[in-house]
Amino acid sequence: MKTVGIIGGSGFIGSYTTRKFLAEGFNVKVSVTNIKKSEKYQHLFNLENSDNLNIRPLKVENLSDLKDFISDCEIVIHGGTPFQLDVKDPQKELFDPTIRGTENFLAALTETSFIKKVVIIASVAAFNTNFPMPAYGKSAADTFNEKDKKHINTESHPYAQAKFMANQTVEKFIKENPNLSFEITSVSPVGVMGKSLSKREDSTSTGLQFLIKNKIAPNPFIQMLYDTNAEFALVDVGDVAEAIFKAATTSGLHGKNYLLSSESYAISDMNLMLNHQTSKNKAKIIYENALAMKDLNMTFKPMHQTLNNYSQ
């Protein structure tokens, strides 16, 4: 039985990823930042095959702990960077754990011999920090894919900037280490939607769905979405977990970064569907998914199904 280590495996995307690997018969090690806060990971023990689950404390800033966590893993999934929109100290809350955590993770990989595959859960922000606004030089109707020029805007949200810089760190590492004994593949989801597997109230993804459903704007970023009726590229959280699993178990994908996207809807249509109503406009394809469909054999759920199933 193979062992997979999932850094951040109790979060919104992480929980679905943990569930997928358990269902596929893996031993699954999940990292949590604070082992004493069992309410953040207790839901994982309700999953099928949870006898094969091991919860371990880990802070990605600690290199020795990282080395220990991944030492017996054939596959490692790194999704342990914070996703938060309300930020008081961007350096401490986002840049340090995201960028330095990624640097530490890559350093730890070079000192292990057991690992065969690494999957990094990046973000659409690795391609465009303006998301969900168009990338530089594009209109709202223009499509975007992995071949388009990556764009960072220093006025973008700190989370987006941190994810962009972390992805640049990964790309630089791959370029500077051409003879690695393992493959690194990245996946970059757009706006991830769906039901949470936990009852945690600190999930930004589920929180964003709640805000859009109820037209609440707690900060200027959310208000901007309403004011512009932004076109939001979306993907189902279960599809993201499926893509992560396929990226982890498919060889020959070293150095690739896949956009994970289903359809795009305006915020007003998202509001309708989250309230179990029919959208006024048809879905658009803004962020393309052809590469993930080809290399990972992915099919993506229509977003009206995902949004209509949201229950909070």
Rank of each mutant, 00 (worst) to 15 (best):
D236K: 04
H151P: 00
I174Q: 10
K29F: 05
L253Q: 09
K29G: 01
T249S: 14
F45M: 07
E155R: 13
P158K: 12
N271C: 12
T206A: 15
L253K: 12
Y41R: 07
T206G: 09
N167Q: 15
N289W: 09
S196R: 03
E111V: 11
N219E: 07
F232C: 13
I13T: 10
K282I: 05
S10W: 03
P218F: 06
K175N: 14
N219W: 05
G191C: 12
F21E: 01
E288W: 04
K195Q: 14
A266H: 14
I6L: 08
S139C: 09
L106F: 02
L22D: 01
F105M: 12
V60N: 00
Y159G: 04
G9T: 12
F232L: 15
Q209T: 12
K2Q: 13
K215Q: 14
G194P: 10
Q277V: 08
K294N: 14
A290C: 00
A233W: 01
H254E: 10
K147G: 12
N219F: 04
V237G: 02
V187L: 13
E74M: 05
A166S: 14
A107I: 10
V187K: 09
S205L: 15
T204F: 05
G137D: 10
N128L: 04
E24S: 13
T3H: 09
L225G: 03
L307Q: 07
K301G: 01
L94H: 03
S196L: 08
G8A: 05
I70R: 00
E74F: 04
L234N: 10
A266L: 04
F173V: 09
L260C: 06
I13V: 12
F114P: 01
N34H: 13
K40P: 02
A135H: 03
K150L: 08
L109G: 04
A108M: 08
S64D: 15
K246I: 00
P218S: 06
M1P: 12
A160Q: 05
L208I: 14
S10F: 13
I115M: 11
I222V: 15
K147R: 11
A233M: 09
M293R: 14
N27G: 01
N128H: 07
H304N: 15
E231Q: 13
V170W: 07
A141R: 12
Q277W: 03
I212G: 06
E61L: 15
D96V: 11
E155K: 15
T3L: 07
S196H: 06
H254K: 13
I152F: 03
M193P: 02
E242I: 03
L47N: 07
L85E: 02
L253T: 07
V190Q: 08
F173S: 06
N130P: 00
S251R: 09
N309S: 15
N179G: 09
T102N: 01
I285T: 15
F182K: 03
L272F: 04
R200F: 00
I244C: 08
Y226V: 01
E74C: 02
L58T: 02
Y287R: 01
T250R: 08
K40D: 11
K215E: 11
A160Y: 02
Q168T: 12
V118L: 10
T33K: 14
K301W: 00
K172M: 08
L208G: 05
A243F: 06
Q312W: 15
V118W: 02
A247K: 08
S15Q: 01
E146K: 11
L53C: 02
I70Y: 00
N62F: 03
